[in-house]
């Protein structure tokens, strides 16, 4: 009991003094499970996040755009891998995480349940969705769990071109023909509100937030991060002559921030509960990809077993003898 109190004390001191918690350090069970939940959800979001954009790789309008989009989607796959590895240091297995994603019990960012019917959607995703992700991820570089923080730093470095390429697409369309400009505006209209929902419920209604803030898993609140994103994005939209679809959006001199309209939390709940426009097809796409990859995993499994038995060494020796 005394020993336990000592451990808790040590853990809390580390948190208070901004020391990182490392995998082999003692930590409260709840800290561990919160992190597993958050990091695996984050990993799933990176992986599922490839789908809406992946949809456009073969149809990108130029070779330059195609190479860029391919590199971006490839990066997202990498981000998923970094994060799964970080979660595994907490003694969960990749199978557990995958199973939870594939059977629909795990959550991933709801934003990826919206469709990408036009090329402008690829621009809007890079600009807005990656933009929002970056705001969140920069904040998470200071998270208290070492492997998560280091994964975030690496991811942030890689993300910077993601948002810029998206903005460039929107800028090009906004300067193009009337039809192209309309396409860009339409994409902004559809992505704006779901992007704001990415930051999660208002602080007062956020289930996990308080404890996560106390343990410094999260460093800034949902509302704070959302405000930061809005403030920086308004100017960008102005710059390319697009209009953010919010009549209440207005600079508030006193607050030093933009005021904005209320988010449709009913829609947020519906998509979260699985009733968004693409929830089913996203999950099916992941399940199909997993099934299609079965032969690779099987081959690897047989190969590993053979190598552990030493079969290949015997074959080598036989080859030499011949």
């Amino acid at each position: 009991m005394v020993k336990n109190m000592e451990k808790i004390g040590q853990f809390e001191r580390k948190i208070a003094e901004e020391e990182k918690i490392e995998p082999k350090d003692w930590m409260p069970d709840k800290y561990r499970s919160s992190l597993i939940r958050q990091i695996s959800q984050h990993a799933h979001s990176e992986v599922v996040g490839q789908l809406p954009e992946g949809n456009w790789i073969t149809r990108a309008p130029t070779l330059r755009r195609k190479a860029t989009l391919l590199a971006k989607v490839q990066d997202e796959a990498g981000h998923g891998l970094y994060l799964y590895s970080a979660a595994e240091t907490l003694n969960t297995s990749r199978e557990e995480m995958w199973d939870a994603l594939l059977d629909g019990s795990a959550k991933y960012a709801s934003i990826f349940n919206y469709p990408t019917p036009t090329w402008a959607d690829v621009g809007a995703i890079g600009w807005l969705v990656d933009g929002a992700a970056i705001v969140n991820q920069i904040s998470l570089c200071r998270t208290s769990f070492g492997p998560y923080a280091r994964a975030m730093e690496r991811i942030c470095r890689e993300e910077s071109f993601h948002q810029r390429q998206g903005f460039e697409i929107m800028q090009t369309l906004a300067k193009g023909s009337e039809e192209q400009r309309e396409m860009a505006q339409d994409a902004l209209n559809r992505w704006w509100w779901p992007t704001l929902m990415m930051f999660g419920p208002h602080d007062a209604h956020s289930m996990h937030s308080q404890q996560s803030m106390k343990w410094k898993i999260k460093r800034q609140s949902n509302d704070e991060l959302r405000q930061q994103f809005i403030d920086q994005t308004v100017e960008q939209a102005d710059h390319i002559g697009l209009t953010i679809p919010d009549e209440k959006l207005k600079w508030n001199e006193e607050r030093g921030h933009y005021d904005f309209g209320e988010i449709d939390w009913g829609e947020f709940e519906r998509v979260l509960m699985g009733h968004g426009p693409c929830n089913q097809s996203r999950l099916q796409a992941r399940q199909k990809a997993h099934e299609k990859g079965a032969w690779v995993r099987e081959a690897l499994s047989v190969y590993t077993a053979k190598e552990k038995r030493g079969d290949f060494k015997i074959m080598e020796r036989e080859a030499v003898n011949e």
Partner: peptide
């Protein structure tokens, strides 16, 4: 140290490390 991954043997680990950690 940059991170970790799963692999069957050293060669496989090397190839995966190249793909996952050295894209730039």
């Amino acid at each position: 140290h940059v991170g970790s991954l799963h692999a069957a043997n050293a060669e496989h680990a090397m190839e995966s490390a190249r793909d996952v950690y050295t894209r730039r």
